[in-house]
């Protein structure tokens, strides 16, 4: 089997306040293979964005801090490396795009300046070459009149165009990994579909691995190959996209899928998981989903479940005692 591009092992990122330590990401592990698109799904506040910022080591510090764990990028652990080394990695080996294309570009610099800057940080060359590369990137992401856009300011572009610019900028140094933190959430539906199609085609063309962070299962179904479901800072289920949709195991995943409106069966009311996402750090014993789970039993309240493999190859794992067959626990 091929070595993964990104291998996150037992990552724990906490925020420290006067009330003590609040773990936003608690002991999560996952890996991304070359050319793979991995989805990270969960509700707001489940630790998705903190996970992505931890990988970039851009968690605001203080109050945030990576407490323990490893983030291996092609075998190099990023947790202990210097800020200097991190700067060489950001934008060059791992790139990131964000949720808000309207505010993610600096309003006072031309698109061209911002693109060229991204290239200039990591690549050698002269002004002409940078410029040509920037124009090529804009063409690659399907922007018409790329040369003209180079001289325009962000406020002259629409949200969809800005997100294309962000993608062009992110991919301009040929990163091995692209982290997309809810890249389509702020866009309207037709533009969403275009941006997803673009990301998928760039993933195939450039063989860039993508971590797609989203709360939208539709996005996952569209472009991901594998999914991890996060809940309150923990991974609760990991499986292929097919398994997640056809054969969800964790009560939370099942709840999420039930909350998706389905055009085929008419429902009066859309299903919603009872209760709210717990405040990070408020649950210290037992399963974090127990309070909202319809299958809850005594064991869930006493112990924190490990990840159990639900099929032999171990590609589908779930953090739930319902799937304890004795001896299939990962005990991570």
């Amino acid at each position: 089997m091929q070595a993964p591009v990104l291998d996150v092992k037992k990552l724990k990122t906490s925020f420290f306040s006067d009330d003590g330590e609040i773990p936003a990401v608690d002991d999560i592990s996952f890996s991304v293979k070359k050319g793979e698109i991995l989805g990270i799904v969960g509700e707001s506040g489940c630790g998705k964005s903190v996970t992505s910022l931890s990988i970039m080591k851009l968690v605001p510090q203080p109050p945030g801090k990576i407490v323990s764990g490893e983030i291996l990028l092609n075998g190099e652990n990023l947790v202990p490396v210097s800020e200097r080394r991190m700067r060489q990695i950001r934008g060059n080996e791992i790139a990131m795009i964000f949720q808000e294309p309207m505010t993610s570009l600096n309003p006072l610099f031309k698109i061209g300046e911002q693109l060229i800057e991204a290239i200039k940080i990591h690549k050698k060359g002269n002004k002409k070459e940078f410029e040509k590369q920037a124009v090529d990137m804009l063409k690659l992401v399907g922007l018409p009149r790329a040369e003209g856009i180079m001289n325009e300011y962000p406020h002259q572009l629409s949200g969809g165009m800005r997100q294309r610019v962000m993608i062009a900028m992110a991919l301009s140094c040929g990163p091995k990994l692209l982290i997309a933190d809810e890249p389509t959430t702020a866009l309207d539906v037709t533009i969403q579909a275009q941006i997803l199609a673009l990301m998928k085609s760039l993933n195939e063309k450039l063989d860039t691995s993508i971590v797609m962070i989203t709360h939208d299962l539709g996005v996952v179904a569209d472009i991901c190959q594998r999914v991890i479901v996060m809940y309150a800072g923990k991974v609760v289920e990991e499986a292929s996209v097919l398994d997640i949709f056809k054969n969800p195991k964790h009560p939370y995943t099942m709840g999420l899928l039930q909350s998706v409106p389905d055009i085929r069966n008419k429902q009066d009311r859309l299903y919603s998981i009872p209760g709210n996402v717990p405040k990070p750090g408020s649950i210290t014993t037992g399963c974090r989903f127990a309070a909202r789970c319809e299958f809850v039993h005594d064991r869930c309240l006493a112990d924190d479940p490990p990840l159990y493999a639900v099929e032999e190859a171990g590609h589908h794992t779930v953090r739930c005692f319902l799937h304890d067959t004795g001896g299939n626990g990962h005990h991570d």
């Binding site: 851009l58 934008g91 790139a95 990131m96 964000f98 600096n106 006072l108 940080i121």
Partner: peptide
């Protein structure tokens, strides 16, 4: 605290330039 400053950092830009170019101009 704004998004474009996070973008600038995510590019791998030095903190000095993030502060004196991207932040200061705004």
């Amino acid at each position: 605290r704004s998004d474009y400053i996070r973008t600038a950092r995510a590019k791998g830009l030095r903190m000095f330039w993030v502060v004196y170019k991207h932040s200061l101009k705004n």
